[in-house]
Simulated scan of single mutants.
Amino acid sequence: MWRMGFPKDLSQERIVALITVAIFAVASVALPGFFSPDNLVAIVRSISVLGILALGMAVIIIGRGIDLSMVAIMAMSVAWYLQMLNDGMGEWRALALVLAGVLVIGLANGFLVAYAEVPAIFVTLASASFVFGLVRSQMIGSDAVPVPAGHWLGHLGGMRLADVPVEVYVFAALAFATFLFLRFTKWGRYVYYAGDNPAAARNIGMPARPMMVLRYVLSALIAFVAGLLTAGSLQSMNTRVVNSTQLYDIVLVAVIGGIGLSGGKGGVRNVLIGAALIGILLNAMTILDIPLLYQNLIKSAILLIAIIVDGVLNPRDEQTAQQGDI
Rank of each mutant, 00 (worst) to 15 (best):
V217R: 01
A25C: 07
D67T: 05
V41Y: 10
S219I: 06
R14E: 08
G63A: 12
A173T: 03
T245A: 12
L112H: 10
G205A: 04
E91R: 12
A79D: 01
L297Q: 02
N270H: 09
A128G: 13
T239S: 07
R136D: 13
A194W: 03
R64G: 06
M4S: 15
S219M: 04
A162L: 15
G33M: 12
L288K: 11
G263I: 02
A17T: 09
D67E: 01
T245E: 01
L85V: 08
M89R: 11
S236N: 13
G106P: 01
F35R: 15
I222H: 06
P146Q: 05
I256L: 14
A194L: 10
M1E: 11
A75R: 05
M84K: 10
G311V: 04
E117F: 07
A126S: 14
L304W: 12
L182W: 07
Y216D: 00
M76Q: 00
V26D: 12
A321E: 15
I43E: 00
G266F: 08
S129C: 10
V309M: 11
M212A: 04
A275L: 00
P291A: 11
I302W: 10
M84R: 11
S300Q: 12
I280H: 00
G232M: 03
D196L: 12
V242M: 07
L68F: 11
G266Y: 03
N283Y: 02
I290M: 11
A194N: 10
M237T: 00
M139W: 10
